[in-house]
Design a binder for these strands. Structure first.
Lengths: 220, 220
DNA sequence: GCAAAAGTGTTCTTTGTACACCCATGG
DNA sequence: CCATGGGTGTACAAAGAACACTTTTGC
């Protein structure tokens, strides 16, 4: 019985949701993956897989699901969210290429990894309804407009800016940094940072998320 | 790397939430567990573990989480809900004893299985907010009073019978069987059966569940 | 006819949704 | 001075929570 750990890594860039893939030599594209050796914890193996493939460290991860694979194998899948801008990717040793792919235009993947991506996406969208997932996809300081844009990509529908602002501030998931940023035309926006709270984007989405699936807090 | 599958099986009886445990010889109490041999799917291994330990079949299961264990081992944990009345338990081959234990008065368990029970309970309570978990804990036909009693045990707080009735019926998770049952004093209650829908018990709980943790729909 | 449980309906409050409007900046 | 995005407030609808009352049975 062989065990693998695989990580579905998502980012939001240029108005699109993207997935991190790499390949060795000229082989098929794959998720960051590793085999747990000696007694390392699964979470650590997942973190190591990402670091090995793309040189990115310190990204929080969440266990997704354990899948059956061909033969007598199983794959423990993880979900990770990163801000591609803050964490440039570069191929590790024996990795030929690492790239971001639009989530709806992926190449052929190894094994059953498309199932991992699909479920990761489902969980990510569901988490949107009750966890401040956007802060993991944004820089340290960000405007509420940028945050809203991330949610609009994740949910694939427009949000009302006024209600969005009210909900996010009421939930206390962000705090003002005191700084502002002028960016082209229009009134300069205040810059916020994460405050660590939890919140929901809006009620309709909450209900949808609940009806379809929900994320969860892994055990301590 | 050795893999085990373990199942946290819950029931509600006599006003209490109980967990199924068994033991071999005079050893420590354990959850139903099995090692996946050849290429059997994890879900099947979980079902087989329950059947082997307690002789119970055909119970829907849901994957919970994959835990690190001592050494280089991992344990894939499952959650199962059964109506103890409909599914009598009896020790399988080489099982000395199987019993229901009150969830808050468990004996010492093997390994890290108390973590599995704790997380299973958390998930079960969270699922309460958006899935009709009670129908898995009740007979084919049941009264709304019985159903409410199950939820009161799971949530550990009293529910308003009138709001409960309204919410359950509105959500369409049960359908009338046409029969009634007189049980001692009081007006006879209509008997319902599951209709397969999803619902939430009440809003406060939904929010609590969301804030603490949530269940999820496993991938297809 | 009284206690006990089932069943129906109504009011109040909270939450979410859809808006109209003003503010500050760049061109 | 106007187009553009930022920021504030308000009116309406829906959902949840609390609660009063009638119905049907056993004793």
């Amino acid at each position: 019985m062989s065990v693998r750990v695989e990580v579905a890594v998502f980012t939001v860039r240029e108005g699109g949701l993207e997935v991190l893939l790499g390949r060795v030599g000229g082989g098929t594209w794959s998720l960051p993956a590793a085999a747990p050796g000696d007694g390392r914890a699964l979470d650590d193996v997942a973190a190591a897989a990402l670091q090995h493939m793309a040189g990115v460290r310190g990204i929080p991860m969440e266990q997704l699901y354990t899948f059956d694979r061909e033969g007598a194998d199983i794959a423990v899948a993880y979900l990770a969210l990163i801000d591609a801008g803050r964490h440039p990717i570069s191929p590790g040793a024996d990795v030929a290429e690492v790239r971001w792919f639009a989530h709806d235009d992926l190449p052929t993947l190894t094994d059953g990894q498309d199932g991992v991506v699909a479920y990761g996406l489902q969980r990510l969208r569901a988490k949107t309804a009750y966890a401040p997932v956007a802060v993991n996809l944004l820089p340290d300081l960000f405007t509420l407009g940028e945050m809203q844009a991330v949610y609009e990509v994740l949910l694939d529908r427009p949000l009302d800016a006024r209600n969005f602002r009210r909900d996010v501030l009421r939930a206390g998931v962000v705090e003002e940094s005191g700084e502002v940023r002028a960016e082209g035309r229009g009134r300069p926006a205040r810059l916020y940072r994460s405050a660590g709270g939890r919140f929901a984007v809006d009620a309709r989405e909450r209900r949808v998320a609940r009806a379809i699936s929900s994320g969860d807090d892994p055990p301590a």
